[in-house]
Amino acid sequence: MEVDKGKGEAEETRKVAEADRDTVTLKSSDGKLFEVSKEAAARLSTVLAGMIAGGSIDDNGTDLKQIGSEALENVVDYCNKHANSIPSAALISSSISFNTAPFKEPEEWERKFVDRLSHDALFDLVEAANFLGMERLLDVTCHKISEMMKGKSPDQIREVFNIKNDYTKEELEEIRQELAWAFYDD
């Protein structure tokens, strides 16, 4: 009787401890573990928020088989940095412009955060953000990719995105003539 009671109490204590933990452990496709603030994860990722609310977070590391360790490290790094960043009033007012686009310009630290990444790391991160439903990170990474694309020629774009040119020489020439204006700088 007494043993059973003790076991029940221990179980209870463990559950309370689990609920009280303020971090969650995530496991990358290659088996590495990362700790991330539960509050930031729930706020920034709709998928993680759902898992936390639904109790499907594994204490020994929640499997994220779609995300490699490098990308997951960046995701966790982003969440932890975001948890500490409180946008100042100056930043908020400077972001108001005539442009009615819903996208809010990346903040300085977000810009630096994605600027240091290689193409591969950036692509991995954008996919991870997409998979985890991290709207803001997806916004910032997509913005960075579009910035990177602006000055590139179609040839360079094919190289970066690993796209096969499926036009014939004649077809390409035809489009180039039709869109000649787009190939000159002002």
Binding site: F103, F123, V126, E127, N130, L138, C142, H143, I145, S146, M149, K150, S153, P154, I157, R158, F161, N162, I163, K164, N165, D166, Y167, L172, I175, R176, L179, W181, A182, F183
Partner: peptide, 29 residues
């Protein structure tokens, strides 16, 4: 493997019209 279509879509909507016209030469898709 390319980036998923929805990400490509998202990225391209952020580019100016002139750049997009140039990118029609990238591939038929």
């Amino acid at each position: 493997f390319l980036l998923p279509d929805d990400i490509i879509f998202d990225v391209l909507t952020r580019l100016p019209a002139k750049v997009l016209c140039r990118f029609k030469c990238v591939c038929k898709g």
